[in-house]
Amino acid sequence: MTQGVDIEAIELRRIALPLVAPFRTSFGTQTDRDALLVKVVTGDAEGWGECVADADPLYSSEYIATQEEVMRGFLIPALASDAGRHALRQHGAPAVARVLSPFKGHRMAKAALETAILDAELRAEGRSLARELGGVAATVPSGVSVGIMDEIAQLLDVVGGYLAEGYVRIKLKIEPGWDVEPVRAVRERFGDIPLQVDANTAYTLRDARHLARLDPFDLLLIEQPLEEDDMLGHADLAKLISTPICLDESILSAQTAAAAIRLGACEIVNIKPGRVGGYLEAVRIHDVAAAHGKAVWCGGMLETGIGRAANVALASLPGFTLPGDISASHRFYARDITEPLRIQDGHMRVPTGPGLGPTPIPEILDEVTTSVGLIDVSRP
């Protein structure tokens, strides 16, 4: 692991990026990305992290304004305290979770800070994030998430376009009234492609008979069909449908992943590093799933090139046996804040440069910045 770090300053930067097209799920429709970036400055390097919280508390109770507030008011002061600084000097990024553990929740904020600190350490040491996490693959398969459309004809055109670009797996967002028929149409048009669906908690156990109508379509999985806290409901649903259940919002840590697997609530886990508190906890979830013979894959949260590159590094670990939401930059953004991440032959190359690899392009970053603040945490 890394050798420790002495932080001099932390920058919190809000940016606004328009999406190339509206992205609709059961939580609502997004037309732009209001993102919070964290830059950690040390004597040896700078490191970047991305907070994946949305503008509104719809996917999660965490939203971007609260994440910035909790960083300024509690998390950064804890890291800058004498005890926090000593822990970081001794243990580096792995100490972040322990220093911040007294503060309940706010995993997305904690993840952004931990990532930025880890990135700074690794850049100073000339080591890549993929290597640090235990990655083994040089490239990872790229899947793409397709939002809810107004018409099936539109959906088929969009899916066809992504397949032509080379994506090796299609994920369809579903909700009551937009589920069986869209899946049927995609299967009939495109045949035996790797296909899965994501419900984003839109159903209840009373919908089990209806969800079983998806079984004949040989889906890779159905993601998070029930509410995030309904672990027993997912275990019951697993006995009533044959499509494998994947949990997303329900998985907040290695502990909840182990509980879900033990209860029989899932066969597959979607790991989103921001949701679980960072990439180090994401690795622990990967290890728990692997120990139980369960597959994992890396989910996406409309990340910029900063978070997207880090996700690619995570997805290079051996237990990530299913294609993740590792789409190219232009899937969401006409112009990303980093050099664009591209797919080739259905795969994305794992960054091998120091830290996360890509860094923001200053000119672009300045254009999309809506606010920025530098917090001096140095000590004399």
Rank of each mutant, 00 (worst) to 15 (best):
E114A: 14
V40R: 07
L172T: 09
E249K: 00
G28K: 14
G147S: 14
E132M: 10
I364R: 04
S371V: 04
S60I: 06
H91L: 14
L219H: 12
A199Y: 00
F190Y: 12
D56S: 15
A87N: 10
D56W: 10
Q90Y: 06
M231I: 15
M108Y: 04
D179E: 10
A35D: 00
D198P: 04
L129S: 10
T66R: 03
I76M: 08
A310I: 01
G233Q: 11
E303M: 08
L156C: 15
D376G: 01
S26T: 08
V41R: 11
W48D: 01
T66K: 11
E8W: 11
L100N: 12
Y279C: 05
F27E: 00
I375E: 03
A313G: 04
I76Q: 03
E281V: 09
R123I: 05
T370V: 13
P360I: 15
D192M: 08
A112P: 03
L280M: 09
Q3F: 13
D198N: 07
P358K: 12
G293Q: 07
R262E: 15
D119N: 14
D34S: 14
V168D: 02
P18F: 04
L122G: 02
V99D: 01
D229M: 08
L356E: 02
S378C: 12
K104H: 12
L226R: 01
A35R: 01
S81L: 11
V96M: 12
P94F: 15
R98G: 12
E165V: 07
A21T: 12
G177D: 06
R189F: 11
I76V: 08
T42S: 15
P176K: 09
P340N: 02
A289N: 02
D179G: 08
